[in-house]
Nucleic acid binder design. Structure first.
Lengths: 335, 335
DNA sequence: TTTTATTTTGTAAACGTTTACATTTTTCAT
DNA sequence: ATGAAAAATGTAAACGTTTACAAAATAAAA
């Protein structure tokens, strides 16, 4: 590997001059410029980014931590993040944590060690203390998730309201016994959705039935398995509200396999509006989150943080939308 | 931000001593150790990774470039890569190129600037010259893709053979007019699959019909649109072989929408065996690539390269498997 | 107690850049 | 030609670590 020193030597100039031509050369005479450029060519010189970053004290890289890369819900958020990053001359790197908290910790540490300029976490599953500490000194923003009583900038939808909306819809179609597939109880977001579900039941004078709540990991497979187990349990239910589209897709599969008609025998509703939800049979009723915009705003906040600006709204809540499709209502609005 | 100097000062020792305790302290007396640790605590000190990496001349980070994060095909490969990386104490960061070559170039440059120790590219769509140059000096391995006549270590399946296998299967079920959905002709991989398709036709005495070839972008939507357009073109076909499962899923959707029975009226076959392929209706006949293993081996080669070892097999070809499901054969083996 | 071996600590150079400042060279008005 | 102003170049410190080597402190042996 050749360094700036080698180039300087070969070109017969000082390293300062080489550095100048590397950065875009304002005050360098044509002939030295030529000499330096030729040396760069000959030596196939590439400046060492680490040294440069060490000097500059920033990297222009940010990390986005996603809980699980195979959940397509995150892809469109990522898009919003990336395009905003690009506009601000930052580059994003994705860290897939496979739902393992230790990985999030690792990257949080990377941030504190200045390996990157900032982090957007789509997860926030990590030890609260570490996160709080990190966030008080370094640029971090959380999207989709949020943390109670912890001053970390975030953007989410109103999960309670959204869950209430979708349950109210199910009930409005005549359903009375709504099963609920939820996930990881340590995530506030799933708790909120459960709370919204409860609120809706109460609002409509229906009883909460503990036997209708099932805990899944947020995947098609797990939704499938839990629905089957629900079916086998003998519990009566005429609708399934899954706290994520992947689980809902699993539920649909299980119900169809058992010969139930959707939505007549059992309606299904999901949450997130992932791409596949409009494509499966029947198309899935769900809550659409403004994914792109969430990404945009999250990155917007992060950029401000990185620049050291003070950010105004600490916790943004973005609007959601109820998308009614045929899994809950024949002839539902297809969108 | 406190530095090692601050810690040394507060603890009343030299920076060398602090450095020693940071790295795991063999020869440091109990009382200085305590003093240093206390100073670290008080100052909330985190060593600067950039400085450390600059000194060590490596980062332990590697980048995996994926063409498109929303293609689930890559997720399992990633898993193989990650677990192998972890075993070797390396960390992977994912760069999603959204099929934009400029992004790949950016990260290639990052490698050449020593920002990371190596790159695994699942794409290789970049200017060949840049890649060749980079690969001759830096650790790079390509997976799933490969480049003609260019000495970059790679691992792929035999795409020609696999495409031939699947077409032969389609023909063996009695199909005679097989449409082919392919993608991005500048990718050798799609060319190979097309070649395999051709080989199979020839082998079976069938004529090549240019009108049955459609170029898509590798997505559900595009597969759907091109199949519709094929249907509208009036061309006769009784099977669709898509060069990727996402496109095949789009094809299934289009065919069903038009009321065609699968596989009786038109069989469908894909390529890759993504998770969704077993779950859709009807389940999709496809080629299974040993995804996890591809990831493992790719990372294995990269580790060797990073360590400066010489690697033996430059271009590995991994075995594939024909998975027959109901989209091509009623009662097809479900796997 | 002295000498020697061992353990702990410190000094300073190095990693590869950038940049303020000083110096030299060039340009141009006089 | 001379001097001043402008432009080009060089010197050296800094960014925050690690580590070979030297020095000092401690422990062990005589």
């Amino acid at each position: 590997m050749s360094t700036i020193k080698d180039v300087a030597e070969l070109a017969g100039v000082s390293i300062a001059t080489v550095s100048r031509v590397m950065k875009g050369a304002q005050n360098v005479s044509p002939k030295t410029l030529a000499a330096v450029n030729s040396a760069i060519q000959q030596l196939n010189y590439h400046p060492n980014a680490l040294a440069r970053q060490l000097k500059h004290q920033h990297t222009n890289n940010i990390i986005v931590i996603i809980p699980d890369i195979s959940n397509t819900f995150f892809h469109e958020i990522l898009l919003g993040i990336e395009e905003t990053a690009e506009k601000n001359n930052m580059h994003i790197l994705i860290a897939d944590m496979h739902n393992k908290p230790s990985i999030e910790e690792y990257y949080l540490k990377a941030l504190m060690q200045k390996e990157v300029d900032g982090i957007i976490s789509l997860s926030a599953n990590v030890a609260q203390q570490l996160l709080t500490q990190a966030a008080s000194n370094f640029p971090i923003v959380i999207a989709c998730q949020y943390l109670q009583n912890i001053p970390v900038p975030s953007i989410t939808i109103d999960n309670i309201k959204a869950a209430r909306d979708i349950c109210n819809h199910l009930i409005s179609t005549g359903k009375r016994n709504i099963a609920h597939l939820t996930a990881l109880p340590n995530f506030l977001l799933y708790q909120d959705r459960l709370n919204g579900y409860n609120a809706s039941l109460k609002e409509n004078g229906l009883d909460f039935q503990a036997g209708l709540i099932r805990y899944c990991s947020p995947s098609v497979r797990s939704g499938y398995e839990q629905t089957l187990s629900l079916l086998d349990s003998g519990q009566k239910f005429d609708a399934v509200f899954a706290a994520g589209d992947t689980m809902a897709i699993g539920a649909i599969r299980a119900l169809k396999e058992r010969g139930l008609r959707i939505p007549e025998d059992c309606a299904v509703a999901g949450f997130d509006d992932i791409e596949m939800s409009a494509l499966i049979e029947p198309p899935l009723t769900t809550i659409r989150q403004p994914k792109y915009r969430i990404g945009e705003e999250a990155m917007g906040m992060l950029v401000a943080l990185v620049k050291g600006e003070h950010i105004q709204k600490q916790n943004i809540v973005a609007p959601h939308q109820l998308i009614i499709r045929e899994s809950s209502e024949k002839g539902g609005i297809k969108k």
